[in-house]
Write a protein that binds this DNA or RNA. Structure first.
Lengths: 339, 339
DNA sequence: CTGAAAGCGCTTACAG
DNA sequence: CTGAAAGCGCTTACAG
């Protein structure tokens, strides 16, 4: 049960070669005769040899350490990111260093540089909103530390990035509502100035246009992703002479606010009004009825990000350096056919 | 601009001591004169020295690695835990390895053992609910890996633990309500069988008893920590011939449910009814009005946990091996004087 | 209280 | 094609 740890030396001895040659086989370097290679591989298998990352890290320029910094109020998102990243990092024989940073602080750049230098990071994962800070990218370029951006606002400038197609997702949700027979659909935008906000709105508009349904100006509300904005939007929509029969909020918190506005007026969700959110955040199942929403494949995204980054480190060409991962439309109790 | 990595040698040179002495200071070993220690610490700060885990791991039996496993649906709690733990781990010159595990899986124990053995963990932090799994404690004892429990249900069996005083916190919240003039207070219990549930209820009862206020049986509702339970509890309370003027829910989600039940009946919170929660979870400020609640000092708790654990590793006696940290009563918009 | 030496498991020059 | 040597940054015996 309890096995002793095997080393390169033990492999070399068993194969009757020098440590250096054993190393060459392990690292798949050229200039080893087929028979020697075979003998060493046999020995590796016999003692179930696994190279020590620690020892490798002390010597070479590689640390086998990937960093993941975060500064995002959405803890759920962060934890999902962590799960995916940790899984893939371990899978590839690397380790993950996680660091909370405060992107507002002036000392942040200094801390980031210290992290990269001191921990000798091989690469770093940049979730939003950090991936959109030019200073951060600048520092990493200076230190020539490879990075991968997650859900970045800007189209990647030649670097690595992973994201989700917000436009298609918003289109899918809109289609879900129109398929249920809704034509009077209220839309609540997120905070101005973020790429996500405009992409989701674009998806809504495009789907409506494709179906030939006009979008009434009074059915558009400018929110800011908060519960309260949803509450206000809901009240405004429901005060209309002809209120919408469905409301699509750009995130779940706002959709929860709309739900509360509807309940306040003794409306039954989804019979009297359908409500849809976006993100599949915890609140979406905490309220009643649970929200129909869009799930971002966060774990898969961070997994992919790690994978891209490590391929890059190994100088393996990534067939797609800026992939976009598929989302899920989660239909729950808050949406129903128009009646 | 481009920072170079600092080593023990550079620190030693700057301080004018041997590498060995510098090492002693870094590792907080005894037998270093105060002045030497001071000089080395100064040098460490100057070059912002951080020991190389890799180098440490190659040599000694110690890994300077602390593990933190988690399996908790509340991501916000986890992230707070992480922040506190990371801060203190770095402070003490250790590194933190974070691992999500699934306490339900049968393979969990195997994975845990692998983590402990392969990463050569010096110690491990066990948040709820993992800290209450006997199999986990068993494995750690087998491997003689020191651990510290966080917010454990059971009174620590001689081991290390950090927690919060739920009884006092529930008493404080109850007093807050009675101080506002409320005597008819509804209480919503959490899920049966967890220590937290009974401790919070005990605090409520004790505070009421101290004030000589009788607790009516119809003002007690057995919930399960979900939003829906809060909604049902609220409806039941509000259907009473003489409903309570204040409702204290054992967590914020249930308090949010009560809020929705109140709004459904066109009651104004807090004018018509005061509502209090527990935990200061994200939902407490997402809904309107924001909830008066109890904040657990999660970051401080995990910080303390790391501190206890590392003291233990250094064979420094902890003056209190099972400390309980102070909480905060957060008064927000959901509670107001009885009228 | 302080330090010189050996060595952890591996890699990177360098030499045959 | 193969290997002996030096060294990564640190720690653990051991000596003063």
């Amino acid at each position: 049960m309890n096995q002793k740890k095997s080393t390169l030396a033990s492999v070399a001895q068993l194969a009757g070669v020098s440590i250096k040659t054993a190393s060459r086989v392990v690292r798949r370097e050229p200039n080893v005769s087929a028979s020697t290679r075979h003998r060493v591989e046999e020995a590796m298998r016999e003692v179930s040899y696994r190279p020590s990352i620690a020892a490798r890290a002390t010597v070479g320029s590689r640390s086998y350490l990937i960093g993941l910094v975060f500064d995002n109020p959405n803890s759920n998102y962060i934890v999902d990111l962590l799960r995916g990243a940790m899984h893939q990092t371990r899978e590839e024989g690397y380790h993950l260093i996680v660091e909370p940073i405060r992107s507002q602080d002036t000392s942040m750049i200094h801390e980031l540089r210290r992290l990269v230098v001191q921990s000798n990071l091989d690469g770093i994962v940049l979730p939003p909103p950090i991936c959109d800070l030019p200073e951060v990218l600048e520092v990493l370029k200076q230190q020539s530390t490879p990075y991968v951006k997650i859900a970045s606002s800007e189209s990647s400038g030649g670097g690595l990035s992973v994201g989700m197609d917000d436009v298609s997702a918003a289109m899918a949700m809109t289609s879900h509502l129109t398929d249920l027979g809704h034509t009077d659909i209220g839309f609540i935008l997120g905070r101005q100035g973020t790429a996500t906000t405009s992409r989701r709105f674009e998806g809504f508009q495009r789907a409506m246009r494709e179906r030939g349904i006009a979008v009434k100006p009074e059915y558009i509300y400018e929110g800011d992703y908060t519960f309260k904005a949803g509450l206000l939007a809901g009240e405004q929509f429901l005060n209309l002479a002809s209120p919408p029969s469905a409301i699509f909020a750009s995130n779940d918190e706002m959709a929860a606010g709309v739900t509360m506005a509807a309940l306040r007026r003794n409306l039954v969700v989804p019979d009297d009004i359908s409500i849809a959110g976006f993100d599949d955040s915890p609140i979406s199942t905490m309220i009643w009825p649970p929200l129909t929403t869009i799930r971002q494949p966060t774990q898969a995204i961070s997994q992919k990000a790690i994978s891209l980054l490590i391929n890059d480190l190994r100088e393996i060409e990534n067939e797609d350096a800026n992939p976009t991962l598929p989302f899920d439309l989660i239909v729950r109790g808050s949406t129903a056919p128009y009646q």
